[in-house]
């Protein structure tokens, strides 16, 4: 019974938080109603709905408490991170549980309602809508958008297409890009002319591209994204089992064969995450953080971080005025 009570309290604190968020993002009343109906129907289904009047009052006071949160930020920051995170996780898990228990059909309707009513939504709002609507994970879904670039083909053509024929050829470029290696970066299909398709995100089609990825994967034994002369030598020695000093097409065929690809998957093929799983993963940040990150042209947020050896630190702004910086975020997994 006690557990039930705290769960109910949890629900209304979520509702409060959502209201606060709704205010911050200027959600319309429809949208807020939809969220509350979503949460309310859930607790009603369990026979836990608090009496109506109390509900409104409680929601209101909770919303005020949450809205006040932003003003109390310093105090909030003073709290141990783990405690704040714990609380946040509890609310998120509850929200995920509540929304996740809706039938796929209801989730979809909820998503559609959000989409309709929440016009000026942030990037994560697009993702929330897509997840609720049960869209499959793929490029272009929700917040998986193309990149933002200052330099694109329109720019390149405006700068360098001297004869305005819609393509940029080597002779039209400054000296530095005439080198084969650099020019090939731009001219992805290697036809000697840089056109719009060369700067599109799609991989160039054709057997050379497929073969290159396959052979690369076979040669790159330590899978570090670089093929070294040792790896090529090792491959050669292995393929030339009889030590004849040369390879025949048959030797190559055998050497390039990948027995792994014929092995059955070690896990049962899953049918992919359910909409409820997706929602939980989204809310718990397993698909990305809700923050949007700096926009194109913004001053990049400065940071100082230790190197992995812990021997020194690097500061982003130290490069300012000196060199451009490439930031590569990621993890082992």
């Amino acid at each position: 019974m006690r557990g039930q009570k705290s769960e109910v309290r949890g629900q209304w604190s979520i509702a409060g938080r959502m209201l606060a968020l709704a205010r911050r993002w200027r959600l319309c009343s429809h949208c807020v109603a939809a969220i509350l109906v979503g949460l309310g129907s859930q607790s009603a289904a369990r026979g836990e709905a608090p009496p109506r009047q109390d509900t409104a009052k409680q929601t209101q006071s909770n919303a005020e408490a949450s809205a006040g949160d932003s003003k109390q930020k310093p105090a909030d920051e003073a709290r141990p991170v783990s405690e704040a995170r714990e609380e946040q996780l509890t609310s998120i898990n509850l929200a995920a549980q509540l929304l996740g228990n809706l039938s796929p059909e209801h989730m979809k309707q909820f998503g559609q309602m959000l989409e309709q009513d929440w016009k000026r939504r942030p990037e994560w709002g697009d993702m929330a809508v897509a997840v609720l609507k049960g869209e499959a994970m793929r490029p272009g879904m929700g917040w998986w958008r193309p990149s933002y670039r200052r330099f694109d083909f329109t720019w390149l053509r405006a700068q360098f297409d001297a004869d305005t024929d819609g393509a940029v050829v080597r002779a039209e470029l400054p000296e530095l890009a005439k080198a084969d290696q650099l020019f090939a970066r731009l001219d992805r299909d290697l036809d000697g002319r840089v056109t719009a398709t060369d700067l599109e995100a799609v991989e160039p089609a054709g057997p050379a591209n497929m073969m290159a990825s396959y052979v690369f994967y076979q040669l790159d034994k330590d899978s570090n994204g670089r093929v070294t002369i040792d790896e090529v030598a090792g491959f050669f020695a292995n393929a030339d089992g009889e030590d004849l000093g040369f390879l025949t097409p048959e030797d190559l065929r055998v050497a390039l064969d990948d027995p792994e690809s014929r092995k059955p998957a070690t896990r049962a093929p899953s049918s992919g995450p359910t909409p409820a799983d997706m929602l939980r993963m989204f809310l718990t940040g397993q698909m990305g953080w809700l923050e949007a990150g700096p926009e194109l042209g913004d001053l990049a947020p400065d940071f100082t971080l230790p190197t992995h050896h812990g021997s020194s630190t690097e500061t982003l702004s130290a490069s300012r005025g000196k060199k451009p910086v490439v930031l590569i975020f990621g993890s082992f997994t």
Binding site: R150, F151, L296, D302
Partner: peptide, 20 residues
């Protein structure tokens, strides 16, 4: 930088984002 699970940025000489 909203960089999870992975993300690339190019920052220009003036410290501004040129590629997100």
């Amino acid at each position: 930088y909203s960089a999870f699970p992975d993300r690339l940025y190019l920052i220009d000489r003036d410290g501004k984002v040129a590629y997100k």
